[in-house]
Design a protein around this nucleic acid. Structure first.
Length: 281
DNA sequence: ACACGGACCTGAAGGC
DNA sequence: TGCCTTCAGGTCCGTG
């Protein structure tokens, strides 16, 4: 079950795996094995991809952006259970069909050189779309997306500013991609624990005061960066995973040194949050 | 404008 | 054993 959980670090790991296989290659063939994922594939999906050369493979939040020489961008989201498999086609007559083996293989890209990139997604929460040049800003999710937490545009100051006036619980605000891009349910809980902040706290209590971010906002911005940086580094050697400090650890002792609390699980906005009521205030 | 809950979908896990 | 229920997750959409 806990296979991927695609939040920013996991999507970045996928990007790093796809990039060397895709960048500079030409998309020779696109096989769609169904007509929709979470939303329908656009009618022109295949025709706008086939024959195009791939300029770059980037990530924004939890979206993958494949830039093409036509100016279009292939937009992909893994949803909850999406994954890619890179292969090499053995059957040159019908390379795409040979690569699609599993019933949840929904898209097969065959690239120049016979490389195949297969998208598998049992739950079909994933999304694929093609955006025309300059259309990213108009795309709902992308256009409104908040700063990249590991980029220069994210800081305690920007975080405090975007929490200002928000009545929602801090944990719920962290899941809002307009506040910060790429955080999901797991790393939101992890960051809050590291910052010593309760997931239940009202977001506006971390807002800017007297022109400067409150100490909690500084700790939270630092914690978000630290949690994500460590997770990105861990993706490269998954078997040495330190796992998570609080996520899915309900009932266990709080890992904060010197804290005698116990990790609790509560529901917020329909999702589970894990935290220590003793050291997170 | 903001906030909340339901829908989407399947597989794993737990209960009886 | 096997059936049934519940839960998990990210994002979008309708409603308040």
């Amino acid at each position: 079950m806990m296979r991927l959980m695609p939040e920013l670090p996991e999507v970045e790991a996928v990007r790093r795996r796809l990039e060397p296989a895709m960048r500079g290659a030409r998309i020779e063939h696109v096989l769609l094995r169904r007509k929709n994922l979470r939303q329908p594939f656009p009618a022109t999906f295949v025709s706008r991809l086939e024959g195009r050369r791939i300029r770059s493979v980037d990530r924004r939040g939890t979206y993958l952006l494949v830039a093409l020489d036509s100016g279009d961008t292939l937009l992909m989201h893994l949803g909850m259970s999406g994954s890619f498999r890179i292969g090499r086609s053995v059957n040159r007559r019908s390379p795409a069909k040979a690569a699609a083996a599993d019933g949840h293989d929904h898209v097969v890209f065959t690239l120049s050189g016979g490389v195949t990139v297969t998208f598998n997604d049992p739950r079909r929460f994933g999304v694929m779309d093609v955006l025309a040049e300059g259309a990213a800003a108009a795309h709902g999710a992308l256009g409104a997306m908040g700063p990249e937490p590991l980029g220069a545009s994210f800081s305690a100051d920007t975080l405090a500013r975007s929490l200002a006036g928000k009545r929602v619980a801090l944990k719920v605000a962290l899941l809002d991609q307009r506040v910060v891009a790429g955080l999901g349910n797991i790393y939101a809980s992890e960051a809050l624990h590291r910052a010593g902040l309760s997931p239940l706290r009202r977001s506006s209590t971390l807002a800017t005061a007297a022109g400067r971010p409150r100490p909690g906002a500084v700790r939270l911005a630092d914690a978000i960066k630290a949690v994500l940086r460590e997770a990105v580094a861990r993706q490269e050697r998954p078997y040495r995973a330190g796992r998570f400090r609080v996520y899915d650890h309900a009932g266990e002792p709080c890992p904060t040194p010197g804290c005698r609390g116990t990790i609790r699980r509560i529901a917020q906005a329909g999702r589970s949050s894990f935290y220590c009521a003793v050291c997170q205030r």
